[in-house]
């Protein structure tokens, strides 16, 4: 049976376009133009994934409310935020609404579909034990590529899909500098440099929340970022310029 995706978007053209594309990839789509409409529908039946626009008609932050309601109904339901505003990124992370990912609306449809597929995979495989070959280990870091789960010191780091992909891109080849374009490609997003910077900032914060001494994500000014190797981490107290 086809997976059912709820699309809550107030702009009819975008709604129709997204719905068409999603349908074409074999999902079932329920579209809602406003928060009350979606809320009522969710009370009757939960979708398997929700794509929520933050600004909904007269409610500039209706998407957040809806996300909270959905989370109350289901802890595991994958939720993706769509936003027209870059600044919403920070609000989403600040409110810890439990979204699995957030995207600006100019994300391309293939990127969006890739995310949907990845989130479904993560949800499906959450229960099954991970196959060893699907796990990347870099010192304290373990990345489960099947379930998109990151752990540090065996503690789960609650990364969004985009953040997970970024960490993966960095940790795959420790010590190699990844520039912003490469990170964007790996994380399947198209954003400006500043957004990359804020993503990196959030990734650091999330790791630091688990381990206060975390400093494995290194900024190489003017070039990009790299994953600091474990061997180097022992000397982490020395300034990188030394």
């Amino acid at each position: 049976m086809a997976k059912r995706i709820a699309l809550i978007e107030d702009d009819p053209a975008i709604r129709a376009n997204y719905a068409d594309a999603i349908k074409k990839h074999g999902y079932e789509v329920a579209t809602y133009a406003s928060r009350p409409e979606a809320s009522n529908a969710f009370k009757l039946r939960l979708p398997e994934l929700a794509l929520i626009d933050i600004g909904l008609g007269s409610e500039p932050e209706g998407g957040f409310t809806l996300c909270r309601e959905l989370r109350a109904l289901s802890a595991n339901l994958p939720i993706i935020f769509l936003t027209a505003r870059d600044s919403d990124f920070d609000i989403v992370s600040g409110l810890r609404l439990g979204a699995d990912d957030y995207l600006t609306k100019d994300v391309s449809l293939p990127h969006l579909l890739a995310r949907i597929a990845a989130l479904f995979r993560r949800a499906e495989l959450a229960a099954t034990p991970a196959a060893a070959e699907e796990i990347i280990e870099r010192g304290e870091l373990k990345l489960d590529m099947k379930r998109f789960l990151a752990t540090w010191n065996d503690r789960i780091v609650d990364l969004t899909l985009t953040e997970f992909w970024m960490v993966h891109a960095l940790a795959k080849f420790p010590g190699h500098v990844k520039n912003r374009d490469q990170l964007m490609g790996d994380a399947k997003i198209v954003v400006d440099d500043g957004t990359i910077t804020s993503h990196i900032k959030r990734i650091r914060k999330k790791f630091i929340a688990v381990d206060a001494t975390f400093d494995a994500v290194d900024t190489v000014y003017g070039m990009g970022y790299r994953w600091r190797e474990q061997t180097a981490q022992g000397q982490a107290s020395a300034p990188s310029a030394a």
Binding site: D11, N17, Y18, A21, K24, A84, K105, D106, L109
Partner: peptide, 20 residues
Amino acid sequence: SHEFRTPITVVRSSLDNLKM
């Protein structure tokens, strides 16, 4: 930038659909 993003999304998603 904010105001333009929605119409651009309409165009882009339409094009993406068209390419399929």
